[in-house]
């Protein structure tokens, strides 16, 4: 039996879909068999982030309504062995699926895959409830902003009341320079406020924009800082003990100068 992990956040635009795509690709790169499920029915995006939008025939709702078999709806990613996508329906809404159907779907997928990653829609309504229904564990994505951390706190509470305790946190889009200046909350601040375990940190990285433009997950590019951070998270999810990335490494000429002078 594989493991079902939901990627959620409450707030929109913090990087759930990017995280799902990169973690999934990261697992596949390490030889795991992975299914990505886009649970954002009506606003599907994981397909374009993965660069698989032209290959959709059936979707999640087709599977739950019995219009096709699960295997027919799964799109195989030709670039990465053992990576599959189950796209969301675009012309339906969140009520087209029930939590029970999602549970069943996750159970079925977990029979065949090592990891099943569910990209949760923003919000705390039906779509959220569907997305978390079949998950064994939850990963929460936030950014170092008041609004995103507040929503993450709400999500942690809701997950707990649904019996999904001990979610893990990813803090996305950290800008080390701003943290250093005291103009951005740092990891310790956020962890202290939310009282959850940290799974990883992702630095702000322009390459994410480029990779989304191209539909090629950043984790496949060794030169991308965010990609490397995602790779680390994948290994942590597999039980490895990987130290947090040192974000101060990129401190520029002046920083190196200060270090030499012994400040």
């Amino acid at each position: 039996m594989g493991e079902v992990i939901v990627i959620t956040s409450g707030k929109g635009g913090v990087g759930k879909t990017t995280t799902t795509a990169n973690l999934g690709t990261g697992f596949a790169l390490l030889g795991k068999k992975v299914a990505l499920v886009d649970a954002d029915i009506g606003l599907r995006n994981l397909d374009v982030v993965m660069g698989l939008e032209n290959r959709i025939v059936y979707d999640l709702v087709d599977v739950t309504e019995g219009n096709c078999r699960l295997k027919q709806a799964l799109i195989r990613d030709k670039r990465f062995e053992n990576l599959y996508l189950l796209p969301a329906a675009q012309t339906r809404d969140k009520t087209a699926v029930s939590p029970e159907q999602m549970k069943e779907l996750c159970r079925d997928l977990a029979q065949d895959f090592d990891y099943v990653l569910i990209d949760c829609p923003a919000g705390i309504e039906q779509g959220f409830k569907n997305a978390i229904a079949g998950a064994d564990r939850a990963v929460i994505v936030t950014t170092p902003e008041v609004s995103a951390v507040r929503d993450a706190d709400r999500i942690i509470g809701l997950l707990e009341s649904e019996g999904k305790s001990n979610p893990k946190l990813i803090v996305n889009r950290i800008r080390p320079k701003m943290v250093k200046k005291g103009d951005m909350m740092d990891i310790d601040d956020i962890i202290e406020i939310l009282a959850v375990d940290l799974l990883g940190i992702i630095p702000e990285d322009e390459y994410i924009v480029i990779s989304t433009n191209k539909g090629e997950p950043a984790v496949a590019n060794p030169a991308s800082l965010a990609g490397t951070a995602y790779k680390n998270i994948v290994r942590r999810l597999m039980g490895e003990n990987v130290p947090l990335m040192n974000l101060e490494a990129d401190e520029g000429f002046f920083g190196r100068f200060k270090k030499i002078l012994g400040f």
Partner: peptide
């Protein structure tokens, strides 16, 4: 001199967040 002095706005963010969460929770 190098314009690196921050405003330390993270403390404001933390305090606002703390208050908001007291109410939310």
């Amino acid at each position: 001199m190098f314009g690196k002095e921050g405003t330390g706005s993270k403390d404001i963010a933390k305090e606002r967040l703390r208050l908001v969460l007291v109410h939310d929770r």
